[in-house]
Simulated scan of single mutants.
Amino acid sequence: GYFYWAPAVAWTRDALDAWPLLASVWGWIGGLFSADPRNFLAPLAVVLAATPVLVLVSLLVVAAFMAPALTRLVGERRFPGLEQKKGASFVGSVARSLGVTVLALLALLVSMPLWLIPPLVLVLPPLIWGWLTYRVMSFDALAEHASAEERAELLRTHRLPLLGIGVLCGYLGAAPSIVWASGVLFAAAFFVLVPLAIWIYTLVFAFSALWFAHYCLDALNQLRAQRAAVAGPPSDGPPPAIGTDRDIASQWSSP
């Protein structure tokens, strides 16, 4: 099967059959409906397991390869005079992205029981994905232009707006999930829906990278302008020395 779809569904179906605690449940559901529920639950379980992987891979690929190029493009066109202090390296950015990704996965696993409550399933996953997007994209947007101190200051003072952008991007990421999940109902078109979902995920995260780049670089530009205004205009040299009365008198008395 495409992307090992058929073997994954078959393995999941065997796992459902081998679980003795669910044997009575399958028999009870089978008595209510003519179709075997495992024929639907096995593909659904594969979809639910594969969706976070697709999201994380798309996010990390965009953050590692597309976000730096998009940030440089925004900096060159909108902020050509903004100094690049390079407060973070590529290795540090990747390490941070992997670290917050692990935290997001743990949050997803811990919150899964709450997804059974209908309102929370529409709130918790976008919040977690939004937090992950905010942490990854905001760091990458400031990696080249801001110093470590400036980045920490901006992430502290703009935490809520950046988190809001991340959550909105998290809800935008729900659209590819619908396309991807439709592969359960339209298994014949699965080989088309998987690349389509990956492409939409990449497009959403590329848009997120541009949004974060514009916001973060503008905030950095304003921060430096405020600090320059507080410091005052730079002087070209030390102020001229003012002589004492004795020096002035000796100057006038000299021939």
Rank of each mutant, 00 (worst) to 15 (best):
E83H: 00
L132S: 05
P68F: 12
P234W: 01
L60K: 03
T101M: 04
I165D: 04
N39F: 01
V61G: 01
E149A: 15
F90R: 14
L103Q: 01
R224E: 08
L160M: 10
L203M: 13
A6Q: 14
A23Q: 14
L44K: 08
V121D: 05
P68H: 08
V62T: 11
G81H: 00
E76H: 15
L155S: 07
V46G: 03
S34F: 09
A49M: 10
T71Q: 06
P37G: 06
V136F: 07
L59A: 12
L48S: 11
L116A: 14
L73S: 08
K85E: 06
G173A: 14
F40Q: 12
A206S: 15
W19V: 06
P68V: 06
A213S: 15
L220G: 10
L54E: 13
A213M: 07
L16W: 01
A143M: 11
L108C: 03
L168N: 03
Q251M: 08
L120K: 09
F33S: 12
F205K: 05
A187W: 07
S138R: 02
S93M: 15
F3Y: 08
A104K: 09
L114F: 15
W199H: 12
H158C: 07
P240A: 12
R13V: 01
A229N: 03
T133G: 07
A209T: 00
A67L: 14
F190S: 12
A50H: 02
S111Q: 05
Q84C: 05
V47A: 11
I128G: 09
W129P: 00
Q222N: 11
R227G: 09
T244W: 06
T51P: 00
L193H: 09
A219P: 00
L196G: 10
A15W: 09
P161Q: 09
L60W: 02
G27D: 10
L142F: 07
H214K: 13
A219G: 05
I178W: 09
F191G: 13
A225D: 10
S97K: 02
E76V: 06
L217V: 00
D218W: 03
L59T: 04
T202V: 14
A8V: 09
V62N: 04
R77C: 06
G183N: 00
V91C: 01
L163G: 03
F186M: 12
P239R: 11
R135N: 11
T133L: 14
E149I: 14
Y215V: 11
D247P: 03
